[in-house]
Simulated assay, not measured.
Amino acid sequence: MPGQVTLELDPSLFGEREKRVAHSGKLVATAFRYKSGVAGLRVDNGAGTVTLLPFQGQQVWDAVFFGRSLTMKSMFDEPQPTRDYLRTYGALFLHCGGTSMGNPGPTDTHPLHGELPNLPHTDAQLVFGEDEAGAYLDLTGIARDAKAFHHDFVSRPRVRIREGATSLDMAVDVENRAGKPLPFLYLAHINFRPVDGAVLIDSVRDDRADATVRQPHLAQDEDEAVVAYHRAIAADPSSHRTLKAGVPIQPELVQTMKAAGAADGWTHALQRHPNGSGDFVSWRPDDLPYAVRWLTRGPDQDALGLVLPATAAPDGLAAATANRQIVWVAPGAAYRTSFRFGALDPAAANGLEATIKTIRGG
């Protein structure tokens, strides 16, 4: 695009000491390396900071706006150099999917959430530009995943950080390089930190008719409070919408919901904080028809997947195949989608809540 400036990111830029690698206006990018060896990129946009992993799945490790981290609590203080999903699980955002996605079912052999979450990126770029909405900085790059006699695809993700904004614009482009159709699945794993007393608001019209709750596997000696929570959800799914302090949710609550869209094709979900502010996700149900809600609260993990927009329910490849939820990408073609998420001040949260109620009422 005219007016864009691109900077190639070389791993040698990322050392033990944080150093500025690029800036334009209020957009400042600094490179560093975690003690674990993972390269990190910190972007200050004048409204807060976003920490990215340019060579490991292009994850958003953390984002801080309005003086608070949006990111889940986890046992990981920093990312680890591995493709094992659960051995480095603490990011605000991960691309999930590929030739599989979700929790492997009884007959599945694929890794948890597929190839994309920690996919190594051989190249990464920063792109500075400006459009009708103002100045921005993109992190993008290319990663290839190939397996003989199985698949060959190239992923081109992009996260756009706008000057002075408190949200992130995400896009993903996955091209099928193989000579046969690619069976593809995708889920945007956005992990907010839950807020006690918050209310979850979305365009799901009927929690009983338009939401399916996955039955958890509870240990025989499970805490009585955990059992009571899951029994309450089974009796009244809408009861999960208020996050009550001190209520353990383990191992997790997983709901797959049908969310209504607006005339412009978009829909939204909001975690409304007691002080009126909020966290949000916006996506297009035509691209990502399954609104997955994921919630876990305990001493080691405290996380809210307000909505994880997805092409399928997160129940593994066999279930997605049986339920005809696979997206088939022709040779040379690509799957593309975009979405956004972030934080809102009370006035913006008021406006989004009104929009959601209009969609749900319509």
Score class of each variant (00 low, 15 high):
R42I: 07
E78T: 03
V159Q: 09
A188G: 14
S239W: 04
P299Q: 09
A330Y: 07
K26D: 14
F339K: 08
D123T: 12
A135I: 03
A262M: 09
G278K: 03
Q58N: 01
T166V: 13
R83A: 10
R340E: 12
A211R: 15
V50P: 00
F339Y: 15
V127P: 04
L243P: 04
G332K: 09
Q215P: 06
S238T: 08
R208E: 02
I142D: 12
D84M: 09
T99A: 09
K19Q: 15
A63W: 00
A133Y: 10
D221T: 09
L218R: 07
D173P: 05
A313L: 04
E16D: 13
R214A: 15
W266T: 04
P274F: 07
P117Q: 03
P194W: 01
S282H: 14
I161Y: 02
H113G: 08
L7F: 11
D196F: 04
R241G: 00
P251R: 07
Q58A: 01
T256G: 08
A146K: 12
S12M: 10
I249N: 00
Y290E: 15
H95T: 06
D169E: 15
A211I: 08
M101K: 01
R297M: 12
A135T: 09
V154N: 05
D345W: 08
A235L: 13
V60W: 03
L116I: 06
T109Y: 10
F153W: 08
M257E: 05
R156K: 12
L304H: 01
G278H: 05
F341Y: 15
P216R: 12
Q271H: 10
P111K: 13
G90M: 02
H268D: 11
L41F: 07
E353D: 12
Y290N: 14
G134R: 10
Y34N: 10
G351W: 05
A333Y: 03
S69F: 11
D236C: 11
H268Q: 09
D286V: 11
V195P: 02
V292Y: 00
D345G: 14
V28P: 02
E18M: 12
L352K: 05
P54K: 09
G134S: 12
Q271Y: 04
V60S: 03
V43D: 03
G316N: 04
L70P: 05
W266V: 03
H113A: 09
I142Q: 12
P248Y: 05
A225T: 14
A31K: 01
G97M: 10
V172W: 15
A188N: 14
K357C: 05
D210Y: 07
P237H: 12
P299R: 11
L288Q: 11
P106F: 10
P111R: 15
L7T: 11
L344P: 00
I233F: 04
R17D: 15
P117Y: 00
H273D: 15
A39Q: 05
H273P: 02
P11W: 09
G361H: 11
P157C: 12
A291G: 02
I326H: 11
A259F: 04
A322P: 06
G102Y: 02
G316V: 06
M101A: 08
W266A: 01
R284D: 04
F184I: 06
F184C: 02
T321I: 13
G105K: 08
R68Q: 06
R158A: 04
